[in-house]
Amino acid sequence: MAIKRKEYKFQRGRIVEIQEFHDGNYGGPGKKRIKRKKPTEEQMRLVNAKNKAMRCRHKMLEYLDQGDCFGDWTYAITNRPLDMKAALKDFQKAIRIVRDEYHKRGYELFWFRNIERGTKGAWHIHFVVNEIGDTASIMKKAWNKGGTYTVAIKNEPKVYDEDFTKLAEYMTKDEHTREEKKDGTPGKPRIREASYNTSRNMPLKKPHVDKLQRWKREVKPRKGYYIISTYEGINPATGYKYRRYVMARFPEKVKLNRRI
């Protein structure tokens, strides 16, 4: 059976992501074809959540670096918004100040945000923005509703990995997200409502799509690249095999101009 492959390129080919979908047999001759099952509502919700996180990750791969800024804007109890509409206005007012400060310094602002209302009534805004040197100071001055926390992405273990998977999932979580307990069972939801969005100045190119004749057992990096991450699983909506791997180009060696 044919295998569809999608190839995404980021940062002019410095980073490449490959997605492969097995359309029929799970790998080999002699095995029966698995019948396509109609996905349940919960399965479709999981697929939509994964797609949202994927688009977020792709934008991060194209427009962010590991040294960029991750943080939170929190609310003092007396400043908590009445609803999500009010929280959105608070964010819009603050991010305009940030954008203006970036422009004054000659930089373009790229932002990701998720406004969250907890199950106990507290509000906060997770954000990710590109670092320009004094970003922490800019983010703090722009927010007057409570506290500001900032850190470089690579210095925050709960969201850092090299291909932005953890960060994208963290930034796109919502009221359906359940953190896994130590025993592997899902915990209770900690979010009552959420609103995820990004700045509009981060377009993405469409992937190159082709078909393969067979499912390779192992993935190998291209010449000049190394594998950042690999993932294999079963698509919950289709029941078919799925694989994703990301590779990055090795840094170019600096040639020294030595005279003999």
Rank of each mutant, 00 (worst) to 15 (best):
K223D: 10
G28Q: 11
K158D: 07
Q213F: 07
Y102M: 03
G224T: 11
K37G: 06
V159M: 01
E162C: 09
M84A: 05
A122L: 06
K120A: 04
V47L: 07
K173R: 15
V246M: 10
V47Q: 01
K211H: 11
V254W: 02
L212Y: 13
Q213P: 04
R45V: 03
T148M: 01
Y149F: 15
V151N: 01
I15L: 08
D134M: 09
H126Y: 01
A248F: 05
M84Y: 08
G239K: 12
I234N: 01
K9V: 06
P39M: 02
Y149E: 00
T119S: 13
K145M: 11
H124Q: 08
E175T: 06
K37L: 12
R192V: 02
Y8C: 04
P236W: 10
Y8W: 15
R190V: 12
K182G: 00
A2W: 07
Q19A: 07
V98S: 05
E193V: 14
N144M: 08
M247G: 03
I125G: 00
T230K: 15
A76E: 11
H22E: 10
F91Y: 15
R45G: 09
F70K: 00
A152C: 05
L88E: 05
H58T: 06
G27N: 13
G187Y: 00
T230V: 15
M139W: 04
G27D: 11
T119M: 14
